[in-house]
Structure formats: C-alpha cells, structure tokens
Amino acid sequence: MKPKHPLRWIIPIAYVVSLDGCVALFLVGAFFELEESNAFETAVVALMGIGGILLIASIVECIVLHAVNAPYRQTFSRRIMLLTKVGLVPFFCLYGFALAILIVGSTDPLLATTSRLSIFAAVLIGWTAMMGGSAWAIAYAFSLYREKLMCAGEFVVHTLLQLIFFADFFDALVLFAVGRAREALSKRISFAQPVRP
C-alpha cells in the first residue's frame, strides 16, 4: 500500500539535503577560498546542526511509524532506506576523503595526538550520520521478520551490516531488492488464497 501522507517524506529528504548541502558548501568554500570567513563557518555549523536535528526527527518518525503498525510502513521504510543510503553518497565520499587525510596526518609525530582525537570524532560523526538510513533499514528488516518474510538469522545479519561502514550501503541495496520481491510474493499468495465463508 502506498503512503497516504506525502508529508512524511519531508524529514528524511531534508536530512539528506542538509548533509549533502554541507558537501556543496565545502566545495564552494574551497573553490572561492572562503574557509577562513566567519559566514562560511557559521553556515557549516548551522547545516550540521540542522542535519543533527533532522536525524533525530527521522529516527523518531521511523519508530512511531512502526510502533503504530501503519499499513504502508514496509513500502515507505524500504523507499526511505534506499533514498537515504543512495542520497548520502556525496556526503560520505567527502567524509571518506577527509578521514583519509586525518589518518595520513596521524602518522606525523607532532600531529599524532590531535589527529587521533580528530579521527575518533570524525568516525563518531560519520557513524551517527550513517544511522539516518540504517534506522530505516533495521526497522524494515524487523517488519519483514515480524511478518515471517525473513528468518531470524537474516534479520540479525542485516542489522549487524547496517552498523558497519560501506557494508551498510550494499546491504541496503540487497535488502531493498530481496524485501521488495518477498513483499510482492506475499501479496500474490494472499490474493490467491480462497476466502473462507
């Protein structure tokens, strides 16, 4: 069943736009050499803050949607999962580049302590950003498991993969394809069963 409330898309889409907006802002800042300006720093902090708020709102929306057993929760979760994972590819490309620079910088004895703290902070930020899509993926996998369209072992594997960088993206693609096929098969079977008087 299709979502009856198109406004539900606003928070997840705004979350993706806010983080990808940071990427665009960094690229524009680097091109025009604006990194030192106060306006640039304020804009980056504001976008990251908005992204954090939208992350929390998106996870709350996911929990509420599944808690009330909305009839369209599976389809909606599957689509939002894919939208978030694919939509954040630009953000994570820049994030990976920045993390690589920090790791290389940590080999310098003078910058080692600062770089290691920065690496820890960067990994924490990246993992938190990743959870914006992983929450939807885990909720979707759980709904498939609850409706007996997925076994417990599969659910555990999908959940664990959604907590690991890079693996989460490929797992989401597999989960999208497999879940969609199983939903369609389940609907065909339910329609094919005769109605008992």
Rank of each mutant, 00 (worst) to 15 (best):
V123M: 11
A137M: 13
V104F: 08
G133R: 03
Q162W: 02
A135R: 02
V178F: 09
A141M: 04
G126L: 03
T75M: 08
F155T: 06
L83D: 09
C93N: 10
L175E: 06
T84G: 04
F92K: 11
F191T: 01
F142Q: 08
F120H: 04
T84P: 01
F176A: 04
R180S: 14
C151Q: 07
I164K: 11
S115V: 00
V178G: 05
L175K: 09
S118T: 07
D108Y: 01
L185I: 11
G179D: 08
A192F: 12
D108Q: 07
S190H: 11
A98S: 15
M150H: 01
I80C: 11
A70K: 11
A167Q: 12
I164P: 10
L163D: 03
V86R: 05
S190W: 02
D171C: 13
L124C: 11
P90R: 01
F92N: 14
C93I: 15
T114H: 06
T113P: 02
G96N: 12
S115K: 05
T128L: 12
T114A: 10
P109L: 08
D108C: 07
K148R: 11
M81A: 09
L124P: 10
A122Y: 05
W136C: 04
I189Y: 02
W136N: 08
Y145V: 00
F169Q: 09
Y140H: 09
F120G: 00
L161Y: 11
G105P: 00
Y72A: 13
L124M: 08
G132L: 02
L163E: 05
L111V: 02
F76N: 06
H158W: 15
A70V: 03
F170C: 01
S118Y: 03
F169N: 10
R78V: 00
F120C: 03
R182F: 11
S190A: 15
Y72F: 13
A70C: 04
T159R: 08
